[in-house]
């Protein structure tokens, strides 16, 4: 039986092994992923991002637990987590520590957590993250959380990978200018103010609310009519105590319903897959290019750039001419 078949039948070890193949872009991994792809497209993909230490892992731990133990009539959903931590730019190694905060969901057979290293990618996720999500999706996980590396202002790749983006903020991280800068807050579908018991939490909330109101007004002015667009809710949480977690769960579900009723789900799906296709294309073309250039030629040109005999642009022309021939 192929790994893909075993994964579809719910074999967890096969799932773990396939994730490794897929992460390493082995030939086998690519083939198995091709087999699984028709089974994807069902999961709700939720990105969780924010600065280092804002509490992303603790929040994900609580959210997974809450989705596994829903209140009332709701059915528990199967949940997978892809947690990304940075690779060392020097050794290529990594410490993947997100599991430390995710112990409340250990021992649950309908939860699967996979830690991955960013392996040189700079956008907050790894090049393999989209593929890992696809494997989980095909394996029948209905909700997939992607926890990004601790993100600064510009690590916004998650916006093109997830259906719903949760941006986690914490008190004391910046003033109102930070809040109106372009970047990470712009991609938020839900804003969580974690560590809301800390001093300055009220301050942070005021700043974030002002920012949200400005965004809301802008939409109204542009369209000349009341906006029925999604306005990101701001939710205060204390993840370590489980406070505010139900509200975040409800907001995630509400956003899912909004995406479907507004047609935005289809648009985001298309954008997601387009982004993936573009990334694959870039990677493949880059590899083809690199394979066609000998290391010797490359080193020689680099030496000439260092000694200022050639500019980087001139070297580029020589390299590309070589590729054309």
């Amino acid at each position: 039986m192929s790994l893909a078949e075993s994964v579809l039948q719910g074999n967890r070890l096969a799932l773990a092994r396939l994730l490794t193949q897929v992460e390493n872009e082995s030939q086998e991994g690519v083939e198995e992923l091709n087999r699984l792809f028709p089974y994807t497209g069902k999961a709700h993909i939720v990105g969780v991002t924010g600065a280092p230490g804002t509490g992303k892992s603790s929040l994900v731990n609580q959210l997974v637990y809450a989705f596994r133990h829903p209140e009332g009539e709701q059915k528990p959903v199967r949940v997978a987590v892809v947690a990304v931590d940075p690779s060392s730019p020097f050794s290529g190694g990594a410490i993947l520590g997100d599991r430390v905060r995710m112990r409340d969901v250990a021992g649950d057979a309908d939860v699967f957590i996979r830690s991955t290293a960013s392996r040189g990618a700079l956008g907050g996720v790894a090049a393999s993250t989209a593929k890992i999500v696809q494997v989980f999706d095909a394996a029948g996980f209905e909700m997939i959380f992607i926890e990004t590396v601790g993100a600064g202002q510009a690590e916004v790749d998650i916006a093109r990978l997830a259906h719903t983006v949760v941006v986690v903020e914490a008190p004391g991280l910046g003033d109102d200018i930070q809040a109106i800068k372009a970047g990470i807050l712009e991609i938020a579908d839900i804003i969580v103010l974690n560590k809301a018991d800390r001093p300055l939490a009220d301050n942070a909330e005021r700043v974030l609310r002002t920012m949200l109101e400005m965004a809301g007004n802008r939409q109204k002015v542009e369209e000349g009519k009341p906006s029925n667009e999604w306005i990101p809710p701001l939710i205060r949480t204390i993840a370590t105590e489980g406070k505010g977690i139900r509200e975040v769960c409800e907001a995630i579900q509400e956003h899912g319903r909004y995406l479907h009723s507004s047609g935005e789900w289809g648009r985001r799906e298309r954008l997601r897959l387009q982004t993936e296709l573009e990334n694959r294309l870039q990677a493949a073309l880059l590899k083809r290019l690199q394979d066609s250039i000998s290391i010797e030629t490359y080193e020689n040109l680099l030496n000439e750039i260092v000694s200022r005999q050639l500019s980087p642009y001139q070297a580029l022309e020589i390299l590309l001419d070589g590729v054309k021939q």
Binding site: S87, S88, F90, S91, G92, G93, A94, I95, L96, G97, R99, V100, R103, S115, A117
Partner: peptide, 15 residues
Amino acid sequence: ARALRDAGMEVIYTG
């Protein structure tokens, strides 16, 4: 864990 990281390995730390 840190030494293995510096040797280029990916280390999952569980606490």
